[in-house]
């Protein structure tokens, strides 16, 4: 191997060392548009704000956004009802059964507007950006496919597999297994 070959290869390798971009500040107009979801009349399923799709779904693919979601999950005491995702007073978030649909918009609406029988509305407690961060984290809890992005790990023990050991579940439950 000639020296310039080695130099070229090193440069090529270095090009791979791209650090994940963290977006701390949203343009106010974009932040506002994050609240505009198009939803079916039944209140389940719909289309997320276009800006999320255009920017490459950061709330599912960006480790910083997932970490913020994880922080909010603990900070707003989601554990109080949903435990580490295994469920308690509230339903589980990682067994593949979703009372109001598994898609991002359904989860976003569950958090923002609340759901009957106990799920409170967090509309006036979090900003839309924070609700999307939490949504992304909750989707990663019940993920069936490995992802390139994971939130930072816990220092203490938790009752679910570590998020960076994705996926939490190998497959979705089949209808014959029965639900909770």
């Amino acid at each position: 191997m000639k020296p310039w070959h080695a130099a070229f290869l090193t440069l090529l390798l270095l090009a791979g060392c791209k650090r994940e971009q963290r977006q701390y500040r949203l343009d106010p107009a974009i932040a506002e548009s994050l609240d505009r979801v198009e939803v079916l009349p039944v209140g389940i399923n719909g289309r997320p704000p276009r800006v999320i799709t255009i920017t490459g779904d950061p709330y599912r693919t960006n480790a910083y956004q997932l970490s913020q979601g994880k922080r909010l999950y603990a900070g707003f005491n989601c554990q109080g009802c949903h435990a580490d995702g295994g469920g308690g007073t509230g339903p589980a978030l990682m067994n593949g059964w979703w009372r109001y649909g598994p898609d991002a918009v359904s989860i976003f609406l569950s958090i923002r507007d609340g759901r009957p029988n106990g799920m409170p509305a967090f509309r006036d407690r979090m900003t839309p950006e924070q609700i999307w961060q939490l949504t992304g984290y909750i989707q990663s809890l019940g993920a069936t496919r490995a992802s390139g992005a994971a939130p930072s790990r816990n220092d203490a023990m938790q009752t679910r597999p570590a998020e960076n050991r994705a996926p939490a579940m190998s497959r979705l439950p089949s209808p014959y297994e029965g639900g909770p």
Binding site: R22, Y24, R25, P28, A31, E32, Q68, R71, M126, T127
Partner: peptide, 16 residues
């Protein structure tokens, strides 16, 4: 009004 311009990365969100 704009915490992320003053202290980027802090956990204070921009509340509309």
């Amino acid at each position: 009004a704009d915490p992320q311009s003053i202290k980027p990365g802090s956990n204070m969100p921009m509340v509309p």
